[in-house]
Simulated scan of single mutants.
Amino acid sequence: MAEKHRTFRSGEAVSKPGEYRSHQGERRSYQQGETFARCSRTGEETEWIINYDDRGCC
C-alpha cells in the first residue's frame, strides 16, 4: 500500500512503468529505467506520483 502513495523526484529512475502525474498536474507515461522529468512549464524539479483512476486501480 505504501508504494501506491509514494512520490518520486525529478531525476529518479522509474521502477514501475505506468502513467504518472506531477504535483503541477502534468501527466506522462514512463517505462522502467527512464528518469522522471522536471516540470515542463518551469524547468524546476518536481514530484511525481503514479496516476490511479477514481476506483483506486492502476
Rank of each mutant, 00 (worst) to 15 (best):
E45S: 15
K4L: 04
R9D: 09
Y30N: 01
R55A: 04
S15I: 12
C58L: 12
Q32S: 07
R41D: 03
R28E: 02
R27K: 12
R41S: 09
E19I: 13
S29N: 09
R6E: 03
A13C: 08
S15D: 08
E26V: 08
S22V: 04
S15C: 04
Q24V: 00
E34H: 13
T35V: 10
S40G: 11
E3D: 14
A13Q: 13
C39W: 02
G25R: 11
Y20K: 09
E3Y: 14
R21T: 10
S22E: 02
V14C: 11
I49C: 05
R21C: 05
D54C: 06
C39E: 07
S40A: 14
Q24C: 01
E3S: 15
Q24S: 03
M1T: 07
E3P: 12
F36I: 08
T46N: 06
A13H: 11
E44Y: 13
Y20Q: 02
R27V: 00
S29R: 15
S10R: 09
T42I: 10
D53A: 03
M1L: 08
F8D: 02
H5S: 03
G18D: 03
E3T: 13
K16P: 00
R41Q: 09
I50C: 07
G11R: 15
I50H: 09
Y52L: 14
T42Q: 08
F36A: 06
R27T: 02
A37W: 09
A37F: 08
T46R: 11
C39G: 05
I50R: 15
R9P: 01
S40N: 13
R6D: 00
N51C: 06
D53M: 04
G25N: 06
D53Y: 14
S10A: 10
G43L: 05
A13K: 15
G56Q: 09
E47Q: 11
K16I: 10
E44N: 14
H23I: 06
H23F: 02
A2G: 06
A37V: 04
E12L: 01
E47A: 03
R38S: 02
E44H: 14
Y20E: 01
G18Y: 08
R6M: 06
Q31K: 14
F8W: 14
R41Y: 11
I49D: 00
W48Q: 04
R41W: 12
Q31R: 13
E34N: 13
R28C: 03
E44K: 15
M1K: 13
